[in-house]
Nucleic acid binder design. Structure first.
Lengths: 129, 129
DNA sequence: TATTGACCTTACCATCATGGGAAGGTCAAG
DNA sequence: CTTGACCTTCCCATGATGGTAAGGTCAATA
């Protein structure tokens, strides 16, 4: 199938499929006589694998590692688990950061009258915290 | 004071101070005869205002709006509150997304033996979910 | 058969906020 | 007068994605 169909079937834009190829994340697709990329069912499975990894927030670098492990029938599941755990830790750190921001901002917003007057604890907090 | 001192005092890199100037977020600093940027205490307060906004996760666009409101003595606190609330909603949405990823990944990681064998529910989930 | 419209190709530019580095000018202390 | 710390502008890179432009291909239809 051509790249458009592969894009629809995998949920990855044609643009990104070409980009993944250019960065070496995926091997170059075979080409028709006229230069059109051609994708097999196996290629499609790989693209879906990538999309699911992205949906779980893995970076391209991590997805590259996971793809290698996927292809390696002799892999140790410990290696996969290590990458996943590392990613979970990273996600949790980001969540904590965001939650701290929300906590601070919520307090300030609650204390703000939100009317026509200029006095505002949010602005004050930004002025000197 | 010069840009290096302003950078240390505000916690914003000299690089970013120049960038903020180039994008119009802040007005161009005055210059010495030899072209060095010069910063007053007022400038410093503005830079600190920006850094605190960044610490709270506001985008540059939002910080621009907040700066305008800060300078506007006739501002309505409702405008500030609206921006803050909007940002809180955005942060909460991002938190929910990340939490969903963590939930899925944690389940998978827990089910993964993490040993020398290749069988791995994480890889399986990426294969076909 | 000629045209049309949907598809494909590459190549370049933009995002957002930030850092790195090069090439060169300025300043103050020794 | 030299040295080292600072400053200037300019260009490039990031990560993952989208946009657009200029041009080639393909299949169906008039």
């Amino acid at each position: 199938m051509n790249i458009g169909e592969a894009s629809k079937a995998s949920g990855i834009s044609a643009k990104m499929i070409r980009y993944y190829e250019s960065t070496g994340l995926i091997t170059a697709a075979s080409r028709s006589a006229s230069g059109y990329r051609h994708y097999t069912e196996d290629d499609l499975n790989m693209l879906r694998f990538i999309r699911r990894g992205r949906d779980l927030g893995f970076s391209m670098a991590h997805i590259g590692e996971l793809l290698n492990l996927w292809r390696d029938q002799q892999r140790a599941s410990a290696d996969v688990k290590r990458i996943a755990r590392q990613h979970i830790d990273d996600l949790n750190q980001r969540i904590r950061n965001l939650q701290e921001m929300v906590a601070t901002l919520s307090q300030l917003a609650q204390a703000c009258h939100g009317d026509n007057r200029p006095n505002c604890p949010i602005i004050e907090a930004l002025e000197h915290s």
